[in-house]
Amino acid sequence: MTITVTRDTSGPMRHIVSVGRHRLTVDEPPDVGGEDAGPNPHDLYDAALGACKALTLVWYARRKGIPLDAVEIEVERDASHERDGHYRLSTRLTLGGPLDEAQRAQLLAVAARCPVHKLMTQVSTEIETTLKNG
C-alpha cells in the first residue's frame, strides 16, 4: 500500500494524508507556522502506538474469550531529549469489563507485544528518499 501526502494550500503548513480510501489532515501548531488543523507527524507516530495496542487487545481478547468491554490507551510523549537520540513514550491502559487480575496482567503483557511497539523498539528501519520525475 502506498500512502500519499499532498500539500493543501488552504493552510500555510497543511497537508492531506491519503491511506487507501481514508483522508487525514496533518498540520503543525501555530508556534511553528501552522494552524493546528490536524495532528503533526509526531502525533501520528505516537497515535500509531496507542491504536495498535488498542486493536491488539481487542483482537486478542476476542480470540481468547476474555470479557474485555472497553479499552482506552493514553500515550504521553517526552521528546525533551529527542535531539540526543532519546524519544520516550509512556502508555497507560484502562481496561473495562469483568476482568480478573490474571486477565488484566495477560492483557498488559499482550499490549507490550503489539506490532507497532515491536516495530518501534526491536526493528531497524531503513528509509530511502528519492525524487520522482514529473
Rank of each mutant, 00 (worst) to 15 (best):
S10L: 14
L49P: 07
V75P: 00
V17R: 00
E82W: 04
D100Y: 10
E128H: 13
R104L: 15
H86F: 08
T25R: 05
P12T: 12
L95T: 13
D31R: 10
P115G: 12
T125L: 10
G65M: 07
R92S: 14
K132Y: 00
R14Y: 08
A79W: 01
V5G: 07
D8P: 08
K53C: 02
G50Q: 05
Y60I: 09
P67A: 14
A54G: 01
T94F: 12
V19W: 03
V17A: 15
T9M: 06
Y45C: 03
R83F: 05
D27K: 00
P67Y: 07
R104Y: 08
L24I: 03
H117D: 15
L55C: 02
T94Y: 10
E128N: 14
D84G: 09
C114K: 05
D8C: 11
P115T: 11
N40Y: 00
R23L: 09
E126N: 04
A102T: 03
T2L: 15
D84A: 14
Q103K: 12
K53G: 00
E72K: 09
N40Q: 01
V71P: 06
T121V: 11
E28D: 14
D46A: 11
V26N: 05
Y45I: 06
G20W: 07
A48N: 03
G50R: 00
R21W: 00
L89H: 03
D31H: 13
A79T: 08
K53N: 01
G20S: 06
R21P: 00
L95P: 15
D8W: 12
A102P: 00
D27M: 02
I16V: 12
H15Y: 02
I73C: 04
R14P: 10
A79K: 06
T56A: 01
K53E: 01
H42N: 00
D36T: 10
A79P: 03
V32C: 08
L89W: 03
R83G: 12
Q122G: 15
K132R: 12
W59A: 04
A70H: 10
A47L: 08
E35T: 12
D8M: 11
C52R: 04
D31L: 07
R7L: 14
G65P: 02
P12C: 06
G96K: 05
T4W: 07
H42V: 06
A48V: 08
L55Q: 05
T94P: 01
R7P: 07
I127R: 05
